[in-house]
Computed example of a mutant assay.
Amino acid sequence: MSIGNSPEDERPFEDDREEARPSVGRALQQARIAAGLTVDDVSTATRVRIAIVHAIEADDFAPCGGDVYARGHIRTLAKAVHLDPAPLLARYEAEHGGRPAPTPAAPLFEAERIRPERRGPNWTAAMVAAIVAVIGFVGFTLFNGGDEDGAGANVAEGATPATGGSASPTPKSKKPSDPKPEPSDSAIAAAPQDKVTVQVSAADGRSWISAKDHNGRLLFDGLLKQGESKTFQDSSKINLVLGDAGVIDLYVNGKKIEDDFQPGSVERLTYTKGDPQAG
């Protein structure tokens, strides 16, 4: 009979610290409770729906609508409950196969070409042309009036013209070019007052966006790459969904929206005519 450890005791020690670590949803739930916050409090602070907060805390990420939005929600909720989002995102990616391949934009735009939209008249170009015409007419009128006044002053102050000889022509000053209007800060600065015009620009990265008119008709649903922009116009209302609002610049009815959207946050916005009002 041998004296010593049994074969079971000689097996390598298995570190179960990974097993003891809470899941992504459990970690967010524990941090929320420790911060003294309810699900309603977190939903109000982050604009993430209550049902999605409950699902994430239960490690059910299907209601998020995809890995991109799941990571954005995890980042937003972690900041709201004072957690570092990086370890949670790393754990999520390890459990769900890492970051997905970027979605190609070509099929989205091909689908948009297959479903052409009826567009109204280009009111922006018409108004800019009208402004240029008015400025040109005013400048021409002022210039002609100045020439007539100058000619009268020359006759009153100069010598009496001699008779019988050809008078030397009076030198004329070079006609200045018509004044040009200053370029506006945005192509929609001259947006018509009877419509709502929204311009979405991906300034700091790429983001998925969706836009609908007041009847709920889909105007655009796709990926906006960095540096690209889209302009939407409707008679009364534009509804927007921004997949990553932190990288987006918004111009509504010629005015830049200065909302401090967080990177990775999903925003649902509504804008109407007149002074921009987010719904």
Rank of each mutant, 00 (worst) to 15 (best):
A189F: 11
Q233A: 11
D185T: 11
N144D: 12
E148S: 14
S177N: 10
I50M: 14
D178M: 11
E228A: 05
F140C: 07
S210P: 06
E19I: 14
S265R: 05
A130W: 08
N215T: 07
G97C: 02
P171C: 00
A35S: 15
V155L: 15
A187P: 13
D15S: 12
F109L: 00
E14W: 06
V53E: 02
V24T: 01
I238Q: 08
A162S: 08
R17I: 01
R26K: 10
A55W: 00
R11K: 10
R49L: 03
R47K: 05
P102C: 03
E228N: 07
Y92E: 09
R113K: 14
P192K: 06
G254S: 01
D185G: 13
E182Q: 05
P116K: 12
V68H: 09
Y69R: 15
F61H: 06
A27V: 01
H54F: 12
A94Q: 15
I131Y: 11
S177F: 04
R26S: 09
K172A: 15
C64V: 13
I248R: 02
A162P: 15
P7F: 00
Y251D: 06
E267G: 04
V42I: 12
I33Q: 14
R32K: 09
G66K: 07
A62P: 01
A156G: 09
D67S: 09
D15Q: 04
V53T: 07
E148H: 13
P183V: 10
V200A: 06
Y69G: 11
L242G: 07
K212L: 10
G254C: 02
P183G: 10
R75I: 08
F143G: 04
S201L: 11
K172Y: 04
E258W: 12
R113L: 15
P183H: 04
S43A: 10
G164T: 05
A129M: 08
